[in-house]
Amino acid sequence: MTQISRDDVLHLAQLSSLALADDEIDGLRVDIGNILNYIQQLGELDTSGIEPTYQVTDLQNVWRDDVIDDYGIDREALLALAPESQNGQIKVPKVL
């Protein structure tokens, strides 16, 4: 049985860029613990010598020409989606 602590939840939240509210933490702790206990059954499978399958298309290295394609979208349309913008730039809180 994998036990997940409150600190584990906060660590995962940090890795996931989630600022969890206090009242969310205990519920997630229980759920994540239960889910981990469920998926751990995969450890029973003998996979020695087996290659992983990351994708199922059989395609490899699909290339395209190295040319700019704006996909028919202009700068103004994209800026209009930003929650805050100023002088043609997306505005964010100060980084440093």
Binding site: L12, L18, A19, L28, I32, I35, L36, V92
Partner: peptide, 28 residues
């Protein structure tokens, strides 16, 4: 006030609990 706070709070408010569960299991 900070960029980290902006990411964390925007994502906490914008996602449902199941989204958060899956993201955190994925991180794990």
């Amino acid at each position: 006030r900070t960029l980290a706070e902006l990411y964390g709070k925007s994502r906490d408010e914008g996602f449902m609990t199941e989204n958060k569960r899956r993201i955190m299991i994925g991180s794990y």
